[in-house]
Each structure stands twice: as structure tokens, then as C-alpha cells.
Design a protein around this nucleic acid. Structure first.
Lengths: 339, 339
DNA sequence: CTGAAAGCGCTTACAG
DNA sequence: CTGAAAGCGCTTACAG
């Protein structure tokens, strides 16, 4: 069962390989009507299917882009990836999605794999742990776009949320509802990931602007496994917070687990707002107030920026960063406090 | 910034391309030590990176497999895909995951795309709507494995859950807890997808075996958008069910939404068991009793079977179907009824 | 309007 | 122990 090639089609249709190739690429300009028909028939008869690998080798373009997400467990990653896929499909590009699992080693392996596979460009949710490689790609003028995070000292244009504003939206919603003792719990910031740092910064600014004290004990950044313990110690303070901002979806889930295990009531015992929408927000009991990212727009923008870079074969990364507006989704996990 | 090729390395190291290729493929058998070192140095100096596209063309193997899931929104799809990826990585294979979105047209497009890209084999969660194409791949002895579903008349080995048993587990758990009026709500069965049909069959058998009547009004199969209406009419019966089995995760979510909107209490007003585990099962209020699929094992098996087919280049699909055991995860969405 | 020839970057018998 | 040559399946100037 040898695969049929363009040569077989040519033979069958009694034309040359070149002509078949022209036909396949829809360059009909000067092609005779019956030539066309003969080729079409031959393709059908033989069940010919083109071999993209051969084409890619010759054209030096695979019409494929790579996406490396830092951690596929974030709802954000999945949604943005889907938006990227939609946008790419429209332009005839395919996608290979890889999960770095928050591990710079894996990220590196995937970057190398994708380049070896000759993808035309890469969209990275960077772990931040491969600066040399990011820089190398820049030096080689290889098309790259960052999503979610920026990396200090690597001038690649990045598609990000207005993270400060996201935290501010949460804090100010609490304040409007009469809350004053407001905490924030994020996942670990050891690698100084920009969204986490910025969200904490936004929290501080919003507290300050509203005349509320910024207390260390109310701000924790921990590995996922430690968040429940962290909640415990935060809520064991003499003056525990009455409300808490979850830095992302996974942090939110840990908080919800803690709340359930300790039979606390939301929002009576603890009000909660999560940054990042979660699948169950609307039908959880109580439904969860969140600050949503415009994942669809962000994914589309990432694809557009990358495709632009690819088509321009452009060298210097002179494209700006893009910041997107968070949106408060008011639900029932925040009550009313009369201060 | 021309990419550096094997020819450049050869020149730089003052050996032939063949020798460089031998080196890259670790066929050191007869290679002189200094030759090796010179090549190694040249690769470093030039920053050479191999081009898999060229290699694939020559070797007629891309070391890549395709996965087409019927609908990525099912938790099951995501988990199985990850398990497949892990298993493939161990064998040096890469993955391209596509989402058919329950649409046979898309599925077809992806099958063709993947084949054009010369993937070495495909794992399909079949929509069931492309029998001719499935059959064609079989005829061509192209390596394919099905997951989740089987397709009537297409003898491809398939990795599936013991669906009947899954439904039975749910029904019998209800019965043990004293429930008698038990319904089942699944997503649409217009295309006769095997898991849904089998789960309904298992429900009927379990009801029968336990001397309970099988009533049409207690069994509904609807499009997602209609499930809430379906619940409404089921619960408006003179003798409404006190317990309901959700045919899969998405059906479960619709039921939970309905329950919330109508301020029903689980399990007092309605007990619920979902087939398929969901991310929030353990920390939902109440936590949700589910029948979980062993997604990790299933994904691993799918990968193993496919990789076996690939390595054997084997023609006839003489491999059997594989059925996996569902597992009841007892939580709090089922109460105790004293009949 | 169509065909012959070169070449994309590799690998692989085979010769020496 | 290493190199010259052919070939994987395409595309693309170029010639006619």
C-alpha cells in the first residue's frame, strides 16, 4: 500500500509533476480546461493526498504555530488556547499546544522541539525560567509572542491583563459593600511572575487609596499545597480578614476547599472574589463573584500579533505590549457589611 | 540569518554530511574520537539545530501522533489527552490534539489535516459521522484507535468504559440508600453514540434487576440546551423522581444549574449522581457523588495500543476492544430514604 | 500552456 | 573509519 505521490498523479493524468503541483496550488492561470479535468480525475482515481511534510521542507513554512502554556490547569490557558486556535484556523494555520507544567526544563524542551519541527512561530505563556533561550530567539528574529506574563529584560511584546486593575476591582467591590478587613491570597511568587506581583501591587494601591491599612498578615503568596494552611493562619488572627481576594482560579479552589472543610459560610464568615472566571462560578452555592479576563480577545490578539510577525518576517520586536481590561462579574460570594 | 544546516556543520568540522548525520543519530560505532569532538564543537559553534521536517520526509515517520477528541469540553477528553501525552512522550512521540466539537465535518477536516501532516497514527474519540473515512483508513492499514465510543460496523479496537456498569453502579447506590423513583438524564442520542446508549441500557437493566419499574417519563436524552426544560417536566410529574443519574459531566452541570435556579436542595429534594468525575465534585455544596472513569489508565492504554500498531505496521486490526471499570465516588449528593 | 531540472535538509546503503 | 551519491515528495524559476 505505497502512498500515492504527485508523480503517480502526473503519470496517470499524462502531464508533468509541475503541472500537477500548479493545479494543487490553484494556479490555474494558463491551465487548459481538459488538463485540469484530467488531473482532477487522476487525483480521485488514485485517492491522492498531499504530503505537507514535503511541501513544508521546500517552502520553509509549516503553516503551524506552537503554543506553550505555563500550566494547562489554569482555566485561562485553555480558553486562550482555544481562541488562538480559532484565529489561526481562519488563516490556515494549525496549532501544537504544549504544557510546560510550570517547569522551565519542560518549557525548554518544548521550545526546542517546536523549533526542530519548524513551526512558523511560538506563543508562550512564559515560566520566566529560560531567559537565555527567549533572548536567543529574539536574536534570531524568530517570531514569538508572550501571553499573560512579561519577562524582565526580554523585549517581546506580551498580551496581558491589566492586573493591577483586576485586583483593584475586587478590593473596591468589597469596600463598596462595606468590607474593611480584606486579604489577598495568591500562588507562589518566588519566580516573580508579573501577574501575581502586579495583582498584589494593585491590591496595595487600592487599599491605600481607600484609607485602609496594608497589613502583611493579610497578604500571602504560597504554593498551592500550602494555601489551605495559609488560610488557616490568616483566619486565626486576632482580627481576621472578613473578605479575601483569590489571586487566580487555582488559589480560589483551595480557598473554597478550606471553607468547606471548616464549615464556614460564604459570604457571612468570609467573602470571596476570585480573579479569573471558573467554570462553576455561576452555579456554585453561593455563586462566586469573579474578575474575568477577556480570554477570547486576548487569544485572538496573541494570534494576530504572531501572524503579523510571521508574515512580515520582521526582525526587531517593535510591537508594544497589549493590556486588556478585567471585568467584575458580580455574583453572591460577597455580602453587605454595615461598617 | 540563514538557518544552519548539516552541510554547514560538515564544512566547519571538516567531515562529510554523512558523518555528521551518523553523529546526530548516535551511531558512533566506528567514529574516531576526535571526529566526534570536532563535530560536537562545530554544532556548538554554529548553534546547529536539526530540522525534523527534513528528517521526517526521508524517514517517512514524523514521530507524531494525532488525537481528535469529539468534544474538548468534556473533562474526560482533557484528562485522557494528558495521559496519552505522557505515555507518548516516554516513547519520544509528540502529540497534536484537535477538537471536533461534536461536528463530523470538523472531524473529517482534522483527519485529513493530520494525515497530510503525516502523523504516524491517530487516536479518535469518534463522532460516528465519518464511517467512510474510518473505513478508508482501515483499508489502508493506517494505525487508528478509538476511545470512548465504538462505531457500528467499523472494527477498530476501542478503549471504553464499562458503560452499563457505570449506570448500574449509580442506580444501585441510590437503591441501597432507599431511593426507588430514579430517573436518568443524558445528552442527545440522535447519533446513537455508544456510551449514552449503553448507560441507558445499564440503567434499565439495574432497575429491572431490582424490581423497579422502567418508566419512559423518567428517562430523557436531550441536547444540552434543553436539559433544564427536561428536568422541569420530569420534576413536574405527579410522581416525580427523587433521584437522577446524569449521563455525563455536561448533563450534570445543567442539572445543577436547574437545581440552583429553582432553589431545590440536594439531596433532600433531588439526589444526584453524575457519571464522569468533575473538577468541583469534592468541594461543591453538597459534594457530588460521581461514577469516575479511570481516565489515566484509559489514555495510557490508548497510547500503548496505537504505538503497538505503529511499530508493527500491522495491517488487520486484530486487537480487541478494552473495557475499563468505573468507580463509584461516594460523596454527599445522595441521602438516605427510608422506603 | 506545459515540462525538465534543481533543490529544500536530511538519511542511508554502499564503496573504499 | 569516512565520503559520494541517491532519494524522500514536493515547489519553483525558467525555457520553450
Amino acid at each position: 500500500m505505497k502512498p500515492v505521490t504527485i508523480a503517480d498523479v502526473a503519470l496517470h493524468a499524462k502531464v508533468s509533476k509541475s503541472t500537477v503541483s500548479q493545479f494543487l496550488n490553484k494556479r490555474y492561470d494558463y491551465m487548459g480546461e481538459k488538463t485540469k479535468q484530467r488531473i482532477e480525475q487522476a487525483i480521485k482515481d488514485l485517492g491522492y493526498q498531499p504530503n505537507y511534510v514535503a511541501r513544508s521542507l521546500k517552502q520553509k513554512s509549516t503553516k503551524t504555530i506552537g503554543v506553550i502554556v505555563a500550566n494547562i490547569l489554569h482555566n485561562f490557558s485553555t480558553e486562550v488556547s482555544r481562541a488562538i486556535e480559532d484565529a489561526c484556523n481562519e488563516h490556515g494555520f494549525h496549532l501544537i499546544v504544549c504544557n510546560a507544567d510550570d517547569n522551565p526544563e519542560k518549557e525548554k524542551k518544548y521550545m526546542e522541539m517546536l523549533r526542530a519541527k519548524q513551526v512558523d512561530g511560538i506563543i508562550i505563556f512564559p515560566t520566566g525560567g529560560n531567559k537565555e533561550l527567549y533572548q536567543k530567539m529574539l536574536d534570531e528574529k524568530y517570531p514569538v509572542v508572550f501571553v499573560d506574563r512579561e519577562v524582565q529584560g526580554i523585549p517581546v511584546s506580551s498580551i496581558m491583563l491589566e492586573n493591577k486593575k483586576a485586583a483593584r476591582l475586587a478590593v473596591e467591590h468589597f469596600i463598596e459593600r462595606g468590607y474593611k478587613r480584606i486579604g489577598i491570597m495568591t500562588t507562589s511568587i518566588i519566580r516573580n511572575l508579573s501577574p501575581r506581583v502586579e495583582r498584589i501591587e494593585g491590591y496595595k494601591e487600592a487599599m491605600n487609596d481607600n484609607g485602609l491599612p496594608v497589613q502583611k498578615e493579610y497578604m500571602k503568596s504560597l504554593d498551592l499545597e500550602q494555601i489551605q494552611d495559609g488560610m488557616k493562619s490568616m483566619l486565626s488572627l486576632k482580627e481576621p480578614p472578613e473578605a479575601v481576594v483569590a489571586g487566580n482560579d487555582l488559589a480560589l479552589i483551595e480557598i473554597l476547599k478550606y471553607v468547606k472543610q471548616n464549615r464556614l459560610k460564604i459570604p457571612e464568615d468570609l467573602a470571596v472574589i476570585g480573579i479569573d472566571d471558573v467554570s462553576f462560578a455561576s452555579f456554585y452555592t453561593p455563586s462566586i463573584t469573579t474578575v474575568a479576563q477577556p480570554t477570547f480577545e486576548m487569544g485572538k490578539k496573541a494570534a494576530d500579533v504572531l501572524l503579523t510577525k510571521i508574515s512580515k518576517k520582521q526582525g526587531k520586536d517593535n510591537l508594544p505590549d497589549y493590556r486588556f481590561e478585567p471585568q467584575l462579574m458580580v455574583r453572591d460570594s460577597v455580602g453587605y457589611r454595615n461598617g
